[in-house]
Design a protein around this nucleic acid. Structure first.
Length: 491
DNA sequence: TCTGGGGTCCTAGGACCC
DNA sequence: TCTGGGGTCCTAGGACCC
């Protein structure tokens, strides 16, 4: 039965930008690093016409397509939209495995009553595509389905963008065998080259090659796996909840850094980012890894493992600095990274016995509620609020540095003027397709319910990014509620 | 103006233990 | 004193994915 579905959002980041900025629709849009060392994360299909591709250096993209819009990512917006898509998929089956923000597998076999004929799955896939378009405000998806993850993924690839293909059971190898080996996920340039050297160019040739030869050329695990995939043998399950195995943060600098004091500051900042994520996600880890890329792109990692897991920023930073010192950085560093692995579900409170248990549960409930708020959001005008507003705003690029030189994030401010609200005390920031007017009610501890104010603009290009502003007089723990509505009735 | 940032999985060698 | 395997953990690097 073709019970595995793969859904892939088309040119996702660029599509979200085009949704939120109507002036970009129909035009080349490139999302990625915009600095001299940036690379393309996503190019809209209009940009791909000019040969712009993911992972291409932005400099080359600019040469090929100078008139494109070059944007840094707004990951909070992508995340909100992604969650809405995943929610749609979970309406169909609980067995949903997100691969990334823009990709997921669904296993339909959980529901015995479902029509899993090719026609039945085609109908379902078409309905999914339509629902995705609705909840995302117009982002299209490509959907593939088949008897395995491999076939479903290749099927969605074949029909993108905005396509649909259900591979009839029994025809898998007919589809796969003429393809170049590089179409198989997991076969990159290095593997393709090794295969070429033993005379294997297509999946059919891969299937005919003996497994011993493949293992000799590629190693035990990879050789075995590819031999099976080539014959469309793939029993990998759709796994709904994957626990993360590592957390890391890294920065590439616009200019190579030599000053050891500067490097120490940066390594601390990266370690702090990692620690904060660990704490937020109620994880801790045992192995700290520092990544150092020198001016000439030679890359070192140095790691050390603690006796027990921690999320303590002091421990992480001390260890990270020590590991950094093991590498000669005097010629210049272009990238630094800090990572934590050996993760365990472990929180500091556990150290002090079960007394903190109730508090912990409350925290978890609060986090769940936050997530629910975000899920609500996609495709509609939205206020992001609560403890994670700062994080969300940060991801949205509001705190991004313009010149790529890392610096400490600015503390939350409450001032008149054009400040975008992105502090944990405020309502967050406003985002949404078709947003025009936002009504905000201020309430402070000192004054009680306060004035109602309306924010907004009639410029359709600016509207989705409407910032909220207010006066310094309202800075006392303001409690703010906001409603946002489109300027015109929803179609 | 060469080559991002977040991950996963695998390999290979050495230490160490039984 | 020349000789085992097997298992696990740790470290460094590399391929690959989105």
């Amino acid at each position: 039965m073709p019970s595995i579905v793969h859904l892939d959002l088309d040119a996702f980041f660029a599509a979200v930008e085009q949704r939120d900025k109507p002036s970009l629709r129909g035009k080349p849009v490139i999302v990625g690093g915009v600095g001299t060392r940036g690379v393309v994360a996503t190019a809209s299909y209009e940009a791909r016409v000019f040969g712009v591709r993911s992972a291409m250096r932005t400099a080359e993209a600019r040469a090929r397509c100078p008139h494109a819009a070059y944007l840094t990512g707004r990951f909070a917006a992508y995340r909100i939209t992604s969650r809405a898509v995943m929610a749609v998929l979970r309406e169909v089956s609980p067995l949903v495995e997100p691969v990334s923000l823009d990709e997921a597998y669904v296993d339909l076999a959980g529901d015995a009553s479902r029509d899993l004929s090719v026609a039945g799955v085609e109908e379902l896939a078409a309905a999914l595509k339509e629902r995705v378009r609705e909840v995302t405000g117009g982002v299209t998806a490509s959907v593939g389905a088949g008897t395995s993850k491999l076939v479903a993924k290749i099927a969605s690839d074949l029909r993108k963008p905005d396509g649909l293909l259900v591979v009839e059971p029994g025809t898998e190898t007919d589809l796969l065998h003429p393809m170049p080996v590089g179409r198989i996920p997991g076969v990159g340039p290095a593997t393709a080259e090794r295969l070429r050297r033993i005379g294997v160019h297509t999946v059919g040739e891969l299937a005919r090659a003996g497994e011993p030869d493949l293992v000799a050329a590629l190693g035990r695990a990879h050789g075995h796996a590819l031999a099976r995939l080539a014959m469309a043998e793939d029993d990998r399950a759709v796994v709904p909840l994957r626990e993360s195995k590592s957390i890391s943060a890294e920065d590439t600098f616009e200019h190579d850094i030599v000053d050891p004091a500067m490097l120490a500051v940066i390594i601390d900042r990266l370690g702090t980012r990692v620690s904060e994520r660990l704490t937020r996600e109620r994880l801790s880890g045992r192995t700290v890894t520092v990544k150092i890329r020198l001016f000439d792109f030679t890359t070192y990692t140095r790691s050390a493992t603690l006796a027990g897991p921690t999320d303590d920023v002091r421990v992480v930073n001390r260890l990270a600095r020590r590991l950094l010192a093991e590498v000669d950085t005097s010629a210049g560093v272009r990238l630094l990274g800090v990572g934590m692995s050996g993760l365990a579900d472990w929180v500091q409170e556990d150290l002090f016995g079960s007394a903190a248990g109730g508090e912990l549960e409350a925290d978890l409930a609060a986090r769940k509620a936050d997530d629910a708020d975000l899920v609500e959001a996609a495709g509609r005008p939205q206020v992001v609020q609560g403890p994670r507003a700062a994080e969300v705003a940060d991801e949205a690029g509001l705190a991004a540095t313009a010149d790529g030189v890392p610096r400490e994030p600015e503390p939350p401010r409450w001032s008149a003027g054009q400040d975008v609200i992105h502090t944990e005390y405020g309502p967050g920031w406003v985002w949404g397709a078709g947003l025009r007017r936002v009504t905000v009610r201020f309430e402070t501890a000192a004054t009680g319910p306060g004035p109602v104010r309306t924010f907004g603009t009639d410029d359709p290009d600016l509207a989705p990014y409407t910032p909220l502003t207010w006066d310094p007089g309202q800075r006392v723990s303001p409690k703010v509620s906001a409603t946002a509505r489109p300027a015109s009735p929803a179609p």
